[in-house]
Design a binder for these strands. Structure first.
Length: 865
RNA sequence: GCCCGGGUGGUGGAAUUGGUAGACACACAAGACUUAAAAUCUUGCGCUGGUAACAGCGUGCCGGUUCAAGUCCGGCCCCGGGCACCA
């Protein structure tokens, strides 16, 4: 067999992919004779085309999957579609179509792109969350949770567009206005379904400690999100009203309370507004913000005195009650106590409105200065009655004990975590399986799926099923009376919270999961964007525990090891329309002019020749339209080059600003690999490729080459294990450089063997990254075993033994010389050799040597002055 | 505002975790081949000085610990992600 002269990726890739398809190469089933490995990447939203973020995510997953297969494991590697969501509705409105066919077409297209990239998925397990075969089980599961008392309904705030008469997502609120109407958005309360994630707060927090395979940063973010704090709930009596209860982590500061603050929709504020138009106006103003926490936290802190007094539980003094825009009714009790002397936000607020500031905590030494800032540290109590002189820690306990004893409070653990609101007033989602009788009483559906009608017309205002009597009208299963269906749909995080489990038994039509789930779960390696560090990953962990408690699975956590891939970012380009709305343009449609340092001077839209604004460098996303389409690069260079370059450009966890200039270098490298094999085809055909054959080199040249080979291999294996693939690629480049520079024929008999060993290492190291090229070369020269079953690589430690070692010599920490020392030299001999060096001597002239530090196999540092 | 990351040549990045800063590439420059271009190959490439050997400086900024700091500690600045209805 002879090799073609030119590397032709298109030809190789289509042939190798056809062979995989024909052999069902990646289809797996349960096999107790092999160690299982479940590798999963976060499934994509089918937006239409793959972007570079997808390519990066799925290449990382594929490299890990193929690496694990090479190690001999039974690898499950599935793919599917997170198919419900807002963009489908917007596209449907824009294109005058329905979300379902738009989504199906996108899936079709993106599946083709994934196949073209040669990802090793078991496609027989593919699922799409918008199909009733999938979502019927989460409907069923939701009713199970309802039976267990984990589901309830309550009023909750949404962003309301008063012009379009519709609920807006936070993303659709731009500078406080609706994105389509431009109307000022209002907060509106509507009844919505919730799941009690707070009932699992303690377990979700505690089991983070056991997730050794998760990045510390993600665990910290989740801990902070759950936000456990220990403190006290304190009761302030209000004349003629129910007492106000507030939570505080600082009961030691209670003598410093100079006001209380309640939310704008707290009953006290609502009542006060009835007789005071200023308060009514203030409440209205508070309603005109978005529900996003970032907006609430950054807006100007405002308040108004309600003119009502509470009684301080310890001093008996009256304390004024304010209504403030930063207090949330939905968080805690909707009321807080304020200690301006010892809390930054309270301090600012008190200064603004001239409220008394009463210091009660003092440092043990020195004095406090609260003329500029609050004093927020712990200290000793003063002006605190019987508690004067206690330290903060003791005082917390003593004051809480006093409150308990006098029936004015209790010790309390508070979580920042709030229950999960799962209702959405949108069409393209899974219908929430509830019905209502004539009196409005809710009861769970008894038959599944509650199917979402897909033949709809989107008018841009509200969900079409909310007006569709064929969907809404039904019969109550118990009474036989007419009833109506819930028309809200689930939050799309609902679908993505359990898909990883469904891949274990995707076509099961008699249950949500079966025993196969316990064979495969937990997922051994999960890979996805760092932007999902909290919400998606927390909901999935929660769901896993719910499924366990319903008896569907027996593990506690869904993902053993987590790799949070850095974002692929890109410049954004936009034009501002009327009312502040922005129209974003894709980087591919913009011409840039750069200065000689590579900075952008101006950006022109190709289609009309007029300038666009250069925005921030941000995560590639649909909404910012800054995704780079990888298809043109696949067409031009082939899948292996795109995969190789994506891995080479940066380590997986680091964010990557996309720049497609450098990809040609990746293509050039694979051509060089091809040429190495073509050049030596006769030798390789004779020797074959098998690293399991043991041999040791005799000639100096062969020994030296094998030292290089195994040094590189050792680093590459280490980097595979720690999942730093960019340096794996660098190692294969170094190896290729070394092979090119070596004259194997000059080594005589040994040459062919040494070359074959190196070629085999090269093919195998590359195989998870550029599987098509590796498979093809293996088919030409490899053994009769398939590449995947031919075994992984190991370092020959005998090849790493050196006679001489290079030491770096420093004088006072500065590099002055390099010396060659026999590998078995004793410390004194190394020191002597270092001191004898001419350049070292130059720097020791006129000074005294105080100390010599020898780091074995590395360096000598001579300390002198 | 709060929580979590990041900042190293013209560019992407490396530094086996306190021990030679800049591996491996991209870009650029010079040369070879070619009528020419592309492709390919060779060489150079942190900054300053020097023909060179070499020397001084250098990992966002300021300070500290250490024989030795990109790496550890303290204080800042800038950039990115998330903040519960984008996914």
């Amino acid at each position: 067999m002879s090799m073609q002269n030119e590397y032709n990726p298109k030809d190789i890739e289509s042939r190798v992919q056809a062979a995989w398809e024909e052999q069902d190469a990646f289809k797996v089933s349960e096999d107790d004779g092999k160690e299982k490995f479940y590798c999963l990447e976060m499934f994509p939203y089918p937006s239409g085309k793959l972007h570079m973020g997808h390519v990066r995510n799925y290449t990382i997953g594929d490299v890990i999957s193929r690496y694990q297969r090479m190690l001999g494991k039974n690898v499950l590697h599935p793919m599917g579609w997170d198919a419900f969501g807002l963009p489908a509705e917007n596209a449907a409105i824009k294109n005058k179509t329905a979300p379902a066919p738009w989504t199906d077409a996108n899936i079709e297209n993106m599946r083709g792109q994934l196949k073209r990239l040669g990802f090793s998925y078991d496609w027989s397990r593919e699922l799409a969350t918008c199909k009733p075969e999938y979502y019927q089980w989460e409907q069923w599961f939701f009713t199970k949770l309802y039976e267990r008392g984990l589901v309830y309904k309550k009023e909750s705030e949404v962003n309301w567009d008063p012009v379009d008469q519709t609920v807006l997502a936070n993303e659709q609120v731009i500078d406080g206005r609706g994105w389509r109407s431009g109307a000022l958005v209002e907060k509106k309360k509507i009844p919505q379904w919730f799941i009690k994630i707070t009932a699992y707060a303690e377990e979700l927090l505690a089991s983070l400690d056991e997730l050794d395979g998760w990045p510390e940063s993600v665990k910290t973010m989740q801990r902070n999100w759950i936000g456990k704090s220990v403190g006290a709930e304190v009761e302030f009596e209000v004349e003629g009203e129910p007492a106000l209860r507030v939570f505080t982590t600082r009961p030691d500061t209670i003598y410093g309370v100079t006001y209380l603050a309640v939310a704008a929709d707290h009953p006290l504020a609502i009542k006060a507004a009835e007789s005071n138009s200023d308060i009514a106006t203030f409440r209205k103003e508070c309603a005109q913000t978005s529900t996003a926490e970032a907006d609430l936290e950054t807006m100007e802190k405002k308040g108004i005195d309600l003119g009502i007094k509470a009684i301080h539980p310890l001093t008996g003094e009256p304390v004024s009650i304010w209504c403030a825009n930063f207090v949330l009714m939905s968080y805690g009790t909707g009321a807080v106590m304020a200690v301006p002397a010892h809390d930054e936000r309270d301090y600012e607020f008190a200064n603004k409105y001239g409220i008394n500031i009463q210091p009660v905590i003092y440092p043990e030494e020195g004095h406090i200065d609260i003329s500029e800032n609050a004093y927020t540290d712990y200290g000793l109590l003063k002006n605190s009655g019987q508690f004067d002189g206690l330290g903060s820690e003791e005082a917390k306990k003593a004051i809480t004990a006093w409150l308990v004893e006098h029936g004015r409070g209790e010790e309390k653990i508070n979580y920042r975590l709030r229950d999960w609101g799962v209702s959405r007033q949108r069409y393209w989602g899974c219908p929430i399986p509830f019905i209502y009788d004539a009196q409005g009483n809710a009861s769970p559906a008894t038959e599944f799926p509650v199917e979402l009608p897909t033949d709809v017309v989107m008018d841009g205002v509200g969900s079409p099923i909310k007006k569709m009597s064929s969907f809404i009208d039904t019969i109550h299963p118990e009474t036989g009376e007419p009833a109506i269906r819930e028309t809200d749909t689930f939050d799309t995080f609902f679908e993505s919270s359990w898909y990883y489990a469904r891949y274990c038994c995707p076509n099961l039509d008699t249950a949500m999961l079966d025993e196969r789930a316990d064979y495969w779960l937990p997922v051994d390696q999960y890979i996805g964007g760092i932007e999902h560090a909290v919400m998606h990953l927390l909901y999935a962990r929660f769901f896993h525990k719910l499924m366990r408690d319903v008896g569907l699975i027996d593990s506690d956590e869904p993902f053993t090891r987590l790799l949070t891939q850095g974002m692929v970012t890109k410049e954004t380009f936009y034009r501002e329309g009327e009312g502040g709305s922005k129209e974003y343009f894709n980087p591919a449609d913009v011409d840039l002019s750069l200065d000689d340092k590579g900075n952008v001077i101006s950006a022109i839209l190709k289609s009309d020749g007029s300038p666009v604004v250069v925005g921030a460098i941000e995560k590639m996303s649909k909404s910012k339209n800054n995704g780079v389409d990888p298809q043109s690069m696949i067409d031009k260079f082939g899948a292996d080059t795109v995969r190789l370059f994506t891995m080479f450009a940066a380590p997986p966890e680091q964010s990557l600003e996309w720049n497609d200039d450098a990809i040609a270098g990746g293509s050039r490298f694979l051509k060089r690999v091809w040429n190495v094999f073509a050049k030596h085809q006769d030798l390789l055909a004779r020797e074959g490729l098998d690293t399991r054959k043991k041999f040791s080199a005799v000639s100096k040249e062969a020994k030296s080459f094998r030292l290089t080979l195994h040094t590189i291999l050792q680093r590459a294996l280490f980097d595979y294990e720690r999942q730093q693939f960019n340096t794996v690629v660098a190692a294969t480049m170094e190896l290729t450089n070394a092979i090119e520079k070596t004259d194997f024929k000059a080594m005589g008999e040994e040459g062919g063997k040494v070359l074959a060993e190196a070629a085999c290492v090269l093919i195998k190291l590359l195989s998870p990254i550029t599987p098509h090229l590796s498979e093809h070369l293996w088919s030409l020269y490899g053994s009769s075993d398939s590449l995947t079953s031919s075994g992984w690589l190991s370092v020959d430690h005998d090849a790493l033994v050196r006679d001489e070692i290079t030491y770096v010599v420093q004088v006072n920490g500065k590099l002055r010389a390099k010396i060659e020392v026999a590998a078995d030299a004793i410390k004194e001999a190394i020191e002597a050799a270092a001191l004898a060096d001419e350049n070292v001597q130059k720097f020791l002239d006129g000074v005294t040597v105080r100390k010599i530090i020898v780091v074995p196999n590395k360096l000598v540092n001579i300390v002198a002055n």
